[in-house]
Design a protein around this nucleic acid. Structure first.
Length: 574
RNA sequence: CGGGGCGUAGCGCAGCCUGGUUAGCGCGCCUGCCUUGGGAGCAGGAGGUCGUAGGUUCGAAUCCUACCGCCCCGACCA
């Protein structure tokens, strides 16, 4: 491709709207332009990068035995009523009506459509297992789209679905995808981890997320430093602490203490001459619109996803103190479990606390000598708090570390949730009707690009891993008016093209500085410069974007080196 | 949706507080000259409903009200 003919609007300055590095660079390098919040146009280079990722995804999915199809983006509300998600999915589902006033939505995911297809077309156990996928634009009306391609409302996703005869067979399909996802992200040249994850609104029995490790990640992961345990903190199980209460220990009577103006755990602890871990922290959230209390030790944090799962809510939200007060008339800041007129979910650790301190549900007052079990009875008890690096690995007891990650893939074992709800069955060997055992498998194709950039950049711009680079080589012609230089540049451009290399030929009438800056910004792995060195010595300069390593070699050597290196590097990643 | 911020040329910003001529600057764009190894220089030029609608005023980018859009923090998620 000739740069002079390409719509590739790079900028020196960063648009004010961008916050994270991938968003800034995608805009500056002319990959994307925003249409409206969370909705982007892919310019030619952005599209090329997108196609690179899709291609790898397709190859690996096909290799794993999955078949590509393409489903509709527009789906009727009735289908979503069958699965129960028309009510459950919430405002993220963009709904609208057609001219007959019938309900429709834009597909945020395709369990309903694929299950409908399966019940029509997969009639016999002989057709199973079947694994179907598509690469398609999805729309989710995110509460807050942000960070460019990282969390758009419209985004490109690979979604795949497996159908099996039994739980065991479904697990085989799941493992197959688990392996395929490893191959995909390895081939993309990304540093990633598969972690145990919460199943969220898709539902199902267990799942793994594939996380690209990057500081700007929106998720936090716990990783065991000894075994291979890794999990999202939303999911990471905390080992139930040993009960080391002294059975003969004295239980004090509850006493009310005046603590005016002391709402924070630390203030109360100081005042009462105790430590935060002697205090029961009482937090109130709205679970499906109803206030619910969550209790953790004063030095712990509530993990909202765990709370949601524990109480079986569809949605748990954090609300401000005044909203809670308006709903409950309770003195926020002085809340405690004793006599609290709300459903109470309690972290397992709290149940072992002895003679502790909590709010008194009375403004300016706390209680001491509170004993769980004696003084209050919880509605739910379990693992409720956020894991920390002080906790032990749930599988081996080893030390844990925390790291940030970007979720680029998520696989779920769905079981029969959708097939039962939608009456999707097949005939088994014995002639009986059985529901499909399903799995679903997503990859944020457009997000992979953002994640790759978050992980691969420097102060000059993007550093694409070779498999994702929109062009593999950029040839700079620094002597447009010099016939010898131009002939040589054209020659190597044509030579590389002939060898099947993806080359961007910078034939613009720009000064050398601009061409160098743009080449770096775009992140193209190989740069070949034809300029004054060629005029003098008949040699070109070759530079690797990632290392900055530079060599001066002949035209022929440059072409051979590039062809060979690209060939072996891509072969290795496969 | 709650909290915060911003909307002035394609992009980045100043001007607004304290209302008063033709609304500025840098980048980019166009023309010419010049220059050619890390985003050059000179000269000339095009480009603006100051987010929208009301209001206050002799007079509004500037003050007031409402609305719209965008960005950041939170819940959500590929």
């Amino acid at each position: 491709m000739r740069y002079s003919k390409l719509l590739l609007p790079t900028t020196k300055e960063t648009p004010a709207e961008a916050e994270v590095i991938s968003h800034k660079l995608l805009l500056r390098a002319g990959f994307i332009r925003k249409l409206t919040a969370g909705v982007y146009t892919y310019l030619p280079l952005g599209l090329r990068a997108l196609q690179k990722v899709s291609q790898i995804v397709r190859e690996e999915m096909n290799k794993a035995g999955a078949q590509e199809l393409l489903m509709p983006m527009v789906q009727q509300g009735d289908l979503w009523r069958e699965s129960g998600r028309w009510q459950k999915y919430g405002a993220e589902l963009l709904r609208f009506t057609d001219r007959h006033d019938r309900d429709f939505c834009l597909g945020p995911t395709h369990e309903e459509v694929i299950t409908d297809l399966a019940r029509r077309e997969l009639l016999s156990y002989r057709q199973l297992p079947t694994n179907l996928y598509q690469v398609q634009t999805k729309f989710r009306d995110e509460i807050r789209p942000r960070f460019g391609l990282m969390r758009g409302r419209e985004f490109v996703m690979k979604d795949g679905y497996s159908f099996d005869v039994s739980d065991e067979a479904a697990e085989t399909s799941y493992k197959n995808m688990y392996e395929a996802y490893h191959s995909i992200f390895n081939r993309c040249g990304l540093k990633f981890r598969a972690v145990e994850a919460d199943t969220g609104s898709i539902g199902g029995s267990f799942s793994h997320e594939f996380m690209v490790l990057a500081e700007t990640g929106e998720d936090t992961l716990v990783i065991c430093e000894q075994c291979n345990y890794a999990a999202n903190v939303e999911k990471a199980a905390i080992v139930s602490p040993e009960d080391n209460r002294d059975p003969k220990g004295e239980l004090f009577d509850m006493v009310e203490v005046k603590t005016p103006g002391m709402k924070k755990v630390e203030r109360v602890a100081d005042f009462m001459s105790v430590v935060p871990s002697d205090i029961i922290k009482t937090m109130v959230y709205l679970a499906d619109g109803e206030p619910v209390a969550a209790l953790v030790r004063g030095d712990r944090e509530v993990q909202l996803v765990k709370l949601k799962n524990m109480i079986g809510a569809d949605e748990v939200e954090v609300v401000d103190d005044s909203t809670i007060y308006d709903m409950t008339k309770l003195p926020v800041g002085y809340l405690g479990p004793v006599g609290l007129p709300l459903k109470v979910a309690v972290d397992q650790e709290v149940m072992q606390m002895v003679n502790c301190v909590s709010g008194a549900n009375k403004k300016g007052c706390h209680l001491k000598g509170v004993n769980p079990g004696r003084d209050f009875t919880p509605d739910f008890v379990g693992d409720l708090r956020q894991i920390t690096t002080e906790d032990a690995c749930p599988t081996c007891g080893g030390a844990l570390s925390l790291t940030e990650g970007i979720e680029v893939g998520h696989i779920f074992k769905l079981g029969t949730a959708y097939s039962e709800a939608m009456n999707a069955t097949f005939q088994d060997k014995e002639g009986g009707e059985k529901p499909f055992v399903m799995g679903c498998y997503g990859i944020g194709v457009s997000r992979v690009i953002a994640a790759a950039i978050e992980q691969n950049n420097d102060k000059n711009g993007i550093i694409f891993p070779l498999p994702l680079a929109p062009f593999q080589v950029i040839v700079l012609n620094l002597g447009l008016k010099d016939e010898k230089i131009t002939t040589a540049a054209e020659q190597i451009y044509q030579e590389l093209l002939a060898q099947g290399i993806e080359v961007l030929y910078d034939d613009r009438d720009e000064r050398p500085g601009s061409k160098f800056k743009d080449a770096d910004l775009l992140g193209i792995p190989f740069r070949v410069t034809v300029g004054k060195v060629f005029a003098k010595e008949g040699k070109v300069e070759m530079r690797l974007r990632r290392t900055g390593e530079t060599s001066t070699i002949s035209l022929k050597e440059a072409a051979d080196f590039i062809v060979q290196t690209i060939g072996t590097e891509l072969a290795v990643s496969k």
